[in-house]
Design a protein around this nucleic acid. Structure first.
Lengths: 224, 224
DNA sequence: GCACAATTTAAACAAGTGTTTGAAATGTAC
DNA sequence: GTACATTTCAAACACTTGTTTAAATTGTGC
């Protein structure tokens, strides 16, 4: 029952890198087993299927991250008065950065994987995350709701998904963006820097004044 | 030379629907030709390759859209004083909605395709768009720059890409989101509604106060 | 040592991919 | 109708995919 713990680790390590770089669908088991220097059949033997491997790769991070987030959310919920939105969002930073202790560059890799998970056509991943961690995420929604009481629930729904899109897309194309930024503005870009740039953008977007259909926006028409 | 104009159209129509729904990589030529009721070899005969088919599908919309956007951008650039950011973003609405005259549900399909183009691993599409329409998009960046003079160029770079992510992700998962919204809030969601919800979010995010590393954010620490 | 389970291995499998081929069909001009 | 170019078609191609199989190897308890 003990035996080689090693093979599973080697597969997970190889898989996460390739998945993060190329996406789930465009990474073959042969690429993974080749990089991991194990036999092709090892994936199916140890994980069952490619789908389950994908979930296992994400689980390594989700388990750690969600436990920490749950703590933080509960702590904020216990406070009497509603929390500042920026405060609520900032709660993600430390738990995310702590993923670096799970693996080298863990934060970057996890966020890239998350991006792939939502942009690749991987319906099972959306379900997997929601099924296992929906309860934690509900706390987050509640916190945001409390900090933006003026926002209708449906508006909040959309804006949180806009935000998910922002994060996920940014992380999925993180490598390309960082390259351009370094070339054009000669600024070193690390994952923490990107996160710190994201927060004000997200906070402002989520808390933006609500657009009302009845009256046209200020100054929208140039003539008349 | 004239002959059956019909086959190419049938292929383009079938391809755009499948591409929008399932993504480029996960749609096979056999699915397309089967839906279009043409022979498998017709794609390679008329378009050369799958890659060129993808570009042709997008070109139908890009040609129309970019010409209109170019007009609008030039018009705004001609104005003396800098334009309001909301104004600049609102310029997208009409040209986008006019894509409905290119094809039924043209706006929704095009935006979904754009989403797929940036989230699928389709490097050639990023290049294709930038190569053909980079000049137009540069005008847009200039407009935003003028309307947010306080924003450093590098910050603007990141925020525009954040915004691209928001749009692209939202459109790629548009169907799923609309379903949830209709189920949970019983509100009809059309593509125009989504666009109108996006604008204030994007405008607020892009124009958000710049986070400065040196001083911690207001009220970020709960203690002390 | 033996017995038995866990793991690794090379090979094959069935199904799917984009693309090419060469003959058949169709359209067009004279 | 003949001649020629355009378009369609069924079939095959070469290749990749995830998964399975059955034999060989290794590890573990006695």
């Amino acid at each position: 029952m003990v035996a080689k713990q090693n093979t599973q680790q080697k597969i997970l390590d190889a898989a996460q890198s390739l998945f993060a770089e190329t996406g789930f669908n465009d990474t073959s088991l042969r690429q993974i087993t080749s990089l991991a220097e194990v036999n092709l059949a090892a994936v199916n033997y140890h994980f069952g299927s490619k789908k389950e491997l994908i979930q296992a790769v994400l689980q390594r991070y989700l388990r750690v991250l969600m436990a920490r987030l749950d703590q933080e959310f509960s702590r904020l919920l216990a406070v009497q008065q509603p929390n500042n939105l920026t405060q609520v969002l900032a709660v993600f930073v430390k738990p995310l950065l702590e993923l670096n202790s799970v693996h080298n560059n863990g934060t970057r890799i996890f966020l890239q994987l998350l991006g792939r998970g939502y942009t690749d056509v991987q319906g099972h991943l959306r379900w997997f995350i929601n099924h296992n961690y929906g309860r934690v995420l509900d706390k987050f929604v509640l916190l945001v709701q409390q900090s933006c009481p003026q926002l209708p629930a449906s508006e909040l729904f959309w804006r949180l998904h806009f935000s998910l899109g922002t994060v996920v897309f940014t992380m999925a194309s993180n490598e390309a963006l960082a390259e351009i930024a370094e070339a054009d503005f000669s600024e070193e870009v690390d994952i923490e820097g990107v996160i710190q740039r994201l927060l004000p953008y997200l906070a402002a977007g989520i808390a933006a004044p609500v657009f009302s259909r009845s009256q046209p926006q200020q100054q929208l028409r140039s003539g008349t």
